[in-house]
Write a protein that binds this DNA or RNA. Structure first.
Length: 422
RNA sequence: GGAAGCGUGGCAGAGCGGCCGAAUGCACUCGCCUUGAAAGCGAGAGACACGAGAGUGUCCGGGGGUUCGAAUCCCUCCGCUUCCGCCA
């Protein structure tokens, strides 16, 4: 959520920036709502100040003058109520409007609205030469580790069942990611709920605008949402808290299941593990000094890249176009791994700087030793999703004899070096 | 799910319906003292909103009510603790 004053400040150039992501900001409406709200607050404050004066007067009043003062105080109460109602109404309208305004994309991002407009930053690793590559679904079935028909039987389309060494590989990947980030990159591991409340989802920006992307549960009169990423619970750990500025940056990680409705993605990636309703992911979240958020983004990107590199997977980093970044983001890099079966790079990680946008929504404040107050900047990145990494490991590791070689760094976790056809 | 109790500032803990944004202690900040530190002494210090500012207002778990006036009385919801039931 933005500070309306900042949006209204011509120096912010908010209208132009938001137009780059196809959002048309109505400055006039904003100004009217803010001005009206502030006026209502002032009116209420003045009435209340008067009421307070009257109360004191009543206390010291003689029996004769008392009834008149009490009567005036009664009247003042009505005027307070009126101003409060107006304030409440305008405040609600203002908040409702502010909550649906996306973050301002950074000027450094390229123009454009799709992944085609992303700019390649660098490539890493050697694209493996695979003759007649199989995709991960064919590989998984031949290896006897993937059972999609049974997944469909259990839960319908867009789910996955892994078996034997496939399940072990999934477990190994997650443990490998977590160990790397906690031991080498200094992240604190958390175990957090996968079901969260509406305010929590609003804090990171999934709500109110993107409810159709989420799975929602309801028991009795209690409503909870399944998280689409651990970003939601990890970032909201500090919702409505004040952090000591000196303690930043805070670096958190968690492995959680992630649930996505994938509404509107009909026909896209319908095969296999690429796009499913439920998957496991290790997420990285950083709370940082807003003045340093872009540097911190590079650090975070490095942590995510380190995982892909440790697995020896060929990948590239792209800078997303201004119109393609997420609602809450102001700057995003994607890491894309090479998928031999598709002959192209596919997204495996998204690393974003949210500035203070999420912190304002969630109320993540900072206080420095000298008393200076502000909001933290939040960043997050996948580090990494287990399913899509498994796809890359299978596809990039496939051998001419139909086996798949496990990346050496992972072997201590799997206990086996190769997957053989069943 | 049933019964009882409790929810006050970073923590602990006071608080006759107006003198309470709230005593006191600890922690904290700054001085003095000290070679340095501790102790001691002195001073300061909550958050949020509106306002150019002076300042004004709000906040004692949330919401509602009584009253000219509520941390203090009433209702309700939520949370915590203890006992019972159930359960992984």
């Amino acid at each position: 959520m933005h500070d309306p004053r900042v949006l209204l400040d011509p120096a912010t150039d908010a209208v132009r920036k938001l137009a780059r992501r196809g959002y048309s900001l109505d400055l006039e409406r904003l100004e009217k709502l803010l001005g009206g709200r502030n006026a209502a607050i002032q009116k209420g404050d003045e009435s209340r100040a008067e009421a307070n004066r009257l109360q004191k007067a009543v206390k010291g009043a003689s029996p004769e003058e008392r009834p008149a003062l009490v009567e005036k105080a009664r009247e003042m109460k009505a005027s307070i109520t009126l101003a409060e109602e107006e304030h409440r109404e305008l405040e609600a309208q203002l908040t409702e409007y502010l909550l649906e305004i996306p973050n301002l994309p950074a000027d450094e991002l390229p123009d454009g609205a799709s992944d085609e407009d992303a700019v390649e930053v660098r490539t890493w690793g050697e694209i493996p030469a695979v003759e007649n590559p199989l995709d991960h679904v064919d590989l998984g079935e031949k290896l006897g580790i993937l059972d999609l028909p049974r997944a469909t039987k259990l839960s319908g389309p867009r789910f996955a069942v892994l078996k034997g060494r496939g399940a072990a590989l999934e477990r190994a990947l997650a443990r490998f990611f977590l160990d790397l980030h906690t031991e080498r990159h200094g992240y604190t591991e958390w175990s957090v709920p996968a079901l969260v409340t509406r305010p929590t989802m609003t804090g990171t920006g999934q709500l109110p605008k993107f409810e159709q992307d989420l799975f929602r549960t309801e028991v009795a009169d209690r409503e909870l949402f399944l998280i689409p990423t651990a970003e939601v619970p990890l970032t909201n750990l500090h919702a409505r808290e004040t952090l000591a500025a000196e303690e930043l940056p805070l670096a958190y990680t968690a492995q959680t299941p992630c649930f996505r409705s994938e509404a509107g993605s009909y026909g896209k990636d319908t095969r296999g593990l690429i796009r499913v309703h439920e998957f496991s992911k290790v997420e990285l979240v950083r709370f940082v000094d807003p003045a340093r958020s872009r540097e911190e983004l590079e650090v975070l990107l490095g942590h995510a890249e380190a995982v892909v590199q440790a697995l020896g997977l060929a990948y590239r980093v792209v800078r997303l176009a201004a119109g393609d970044i997420g609602f809450s983001a102001e700057y995003t890099y994607d890491i894309e791994v090479w998928l031999p079966s598709q002959g192209r790079y596919r997204e495996i990680s998204s690393v974003s700087d949210f500035g203070t946008f999420q912190a304002r929504r969630a109320g993540i404040r900072t206080k420095a030793k000298d008393g200076a107050r502000g909001f933290a900047a939040t960043l997050n990145g996948s580090g990494l999703p287990v399913g899509r990494t498994l796809v890359a490991v299978l596809e990039q590791g496939q051998q001419p004899d139909g086996s798949v070689r496990i990346p050496p760094a992972l072997v201590p976790y799997t206990g086996f070096e190769v997957l053989e056809p069943a």
